[in-house]
Design a protein around this nucleic acid. Structure first.
Lengths: 197, 197
DNA sequence: TTGACTACCACACATTTGTGTGGTATGCTG
DNA sequence: CAGCATACCACACAAATGTGTGGTAGTCAA
């Protein structure tokens, strides 16, 4: 899975990853060759074969621009626990890879909401954060949901007590809301993204 | 920019977006045609032309699988402020689009770190969160940084007082650390991602 | 009615693109 | 030394793919 690459192979993989993120499509064999000054398509194919054999990419046969990068090549390495003394660069600490689509999953029934106010600050959701919400009418006890209360959208935790439902803030300054007939659950918060300038 | 689409055009755009996210490459004209049962490539081309004219995608000429989705087609709509009474589905509330790469930017000098502990809970960074870090040795006053203190990585806010530098937690349970010679700044936190099960 | 836009079809054509075959040269390892 | 992997070349070929031309039919507004 994480077999070492030769410097040349690293270069080629890096070029492919850059192409994908800039042009939003994988390069063709000839585009790769042109970039490195290769005059033969066979050369590029050999490199792709080597990279595929080492698990850094997958290729669909006979298809144009069909290089698919593995997580190790296109994801951000997630470092879990740092053993005291070991450098952050060390590979052993890599717990997995965060793929862009994982952070902001694409789907038809997903939208994002910019959070206003501090009613959920106790749960780590603060003013300006973007919450990503899957549209659904139902939710379970403990889910963080977006609810429409009198036409206003709010982010709260859902609590059930018997047949009663509550929208609970995570900030002592605010009080739980009891769900009335006009309260509608718009969706469930599946992810939070915050960007710093 | 946000011109309305006909139902058929929506279908086509949706199919392309799905293909891109599943197969990680845009479909060919013939793949689109096959999916919809079109027997002519010209039909698909007409649809692509219409979608391009309305700003939902861009196409590179003569290139295979070269459909590039615009933000409106591949990003998650960010809803900023909800006017009381207006439904969440309304288009007027869309403030922008969150693209996957924006949430988890791809670059050579970026890594992610799973946060342990609650020392930054006051800043909305809680246990289990993933912080995305740009590798850099320097940082400015107020930046949230990852620092190596005695071989351990910690996330703190950087404060400067004269020539003195402090690593300040956001939780009253912990005390600021004065930066000593062995303290190294590993990078700056540029984004935080949290996923709920 | 005319003109637009949408939504399709058929077919031909030129490129783009991946693949296959067969080489050369270098360096490393058993 | 032979065997193997890396790192390149040249050239041919078939399949994949985007494009062009010229149609038909329906809807909708001026």
């Amino acid at each position: 899975m994480a077999q070492p690459l030769t410097p040349k192979q690293k270069e080629v993989l890096r070029f492919i990853a850059c192409s994908v993120s800039v042009q939003k499509m994988s390069p063709t064999i000839r585009e790769i060759g042109r970039h490195f000054g290769f005059s033969s398509t066979g050369t590029v194919r050999d490199h792709l074969r080597a990279l595929a054999a080492k698990g850094y990419l997958a290729r669909a046969r006979k298809k144009a621009r069909a290089i698919e990068l593995a997580d190790a090549a296109c994801g951000i390495p997630i470092i879990g626990r740092i053993a005291a003394g070991s450098p952050l660069e060390a590979n052993e600490n890599i717990e997995g890879f965060l793929r862009p689509e994982e952070a902001a999953p694409l789907a038809d029934d997903v939208f994002a909401l910019r959070v206003q106010g501090d009613s959920m600050s106790g749960a780590g959701i603060v003013d300006g954060d973007i919450v990503i919400v899957r549209r659904q009418k139902q939710a379970r006890q403990g889910d963080i949901v977006v609810a429409l209360v009198g036409g206003e959208a709010t982010v709260k935790t859902l609590r059930k007590q018997g047949s009663r439902m509550w929208l609970v803030p995570h900030n002592k300054k605010y009080r739980p809301l009891s769900c009335s007939g006009s309260t509608v659950i718009a969706g469930k918060v599946i992810s939070v993204v915050r960007r710093y300038v």
